[in-house]
Nucleic acid binder design. Structure first.
Lengths: 218, 218
DNA sequence: GGGATCGTCCCCCAATCGGGGGAGACCGGG
DNA sequence: CCCGGTCTCCCCCGATTGGGGGACGATCCC
């Protein structure tokens, strides 16, 4: 709270870098930009040398992947926290970013005061995600925890198989699934066999696990 | 963006209501407080009568549950969006809030400008969650989609039972779980029986479903 | 020392599940 | 008109699971 957060900016657009500098300029007491880089290599060198508190990183870094850079940084300078700054408000990116060890994922529409605040939070060990993006993710997560599924577009599941999968994930037995879909238990078993083949598993619980992992949900 | 967001405040503490009023007073062009209530009944009446854009609601509403009120409101006045304002930064509450149809979950440490901004976003149909809370949830969600689980603090599961549950949710068979934990299959079955009793289910897939639903994961 | 809880393991038995077949019906495209 | 895919249902059989017991040692607390 007392010492300013030391930040390194990484973006392959000169304009963005300048914009961020300007945005943060008014908060010299709370955030200090100690360096900036336009490429992954440069960023890696800079971060290793300066050991900043936070690295502000674009997901799209020209040809290079911001995710790889993130993994590299969290591996080499674990005390530095990586915050992605992106225009993509796709949940999927957030998941990947967090898996890559990111400490935050903000959208480029943040304003100065908010950005500063988030940077401070991240420096203190919090993990921050843009509120609206987070809202959507939370809805996803909430549904996930309830096992709501959808026509599993993936894997070439048929309509019927998807329906069976939904109920399977809901924890229903073959008999219960049959009752729910007004089918014979044999038919359900038959669909399940097809399902197991397509999901490459050998039993129902593994099928559930895969369905969740693969995101065959909505 | 042009018309101010019409808000109803609900909290059983006079002080909080006053504080919110004061906080929002400086943003008359963007947010207008059209009413406030101190109890659930009062709130329900007010919301039905005023049909505001957003209802700012405390999770703890004296003896009554903010969640119930939320369900009631979203049922009766679907165009009104409910935003929880809470001191509890527990992910579990957020999940429950969203399941109850909430449009947002903010912590009481928001400042005026941010609160106003969030209210506008919610009024526009976004779902917002406090960034740091959201960060943790996102981590949860990210892990969830990978099937990583934790000592299910809930339900009075023992350490061992939680370990078994984690693997169960990962889709492992009894034999596989036994191998992983270096136990006999019989022991695993014994833990599973206890688990089923505690989770009130009769088979493994239902147990998985409950574990996911209840958030017995990290 | 006596409970209570936990973790480990065992037996038995019935129910469910998974895997291998196959079959008839329907529908759409080639 | 035939072929492929889907959906439905059937049989058989072995493997796995669930439910009911019980037992033994360790630990912790009163």
């Amino acid at each position: 709270m007392s010492v300013p957060v030391r930040v390194v900016l990484v973006d392959d657009h000169e304009m963005i870098l300048a914009g961020l500098q300007a945005m943060l300029a008014g908060f010299a007491g709370r955030v200090r930009v100690v360096g900036q880089a336009g490429t992954g290599d440069e960023a890696a060198r800079l971060v290793t040398a300066l050991r900043p508190d936070v690295v502000l990183l674009d997901v799209r870094l020209g040809p290079e992947s911001g995710l790889d850079l993130c993994r590299l940084i969290t591996g080499r300078v674990p005390e530095a926290r990586v915050v992605f700054l992106s225009v993509y408000d796709d949940e999927q990116y957030v998941f990947e970013a967090l898996r890559a060890g990111a400490g935050g994922y903000l959208l480029k529409r943040v304003d100065g005061p908010e950005l500063v605040r988030r940077l401070e939070e991240v420096a203190q060990g919090e993990t921050v995600v843009d509120p609206t993006l987070a809202g959507r993710m939370a809805v996803t997560a909430a549904r996930l925890t309830r096992g709501e599924f959808w026509p599993g577009a993936n894997r070439g599941l048929t309509q019927r198989e998807s329906e069976v999968l939904s109920l399977l994930v809901g924890g229903l037995s073959n008999k219960a699934i049959a009752a729910r879909l007004v089918l014979s238990e044999e038919t359900v078993k038959s669909h399940l066999r097809a399902l197991y083949r397509k999901l490459e598993v050998t039993d129902r619980s593994a099928a559930i696990a895969v369905a969740l992992r693969e995101g065959l949900f909505r």
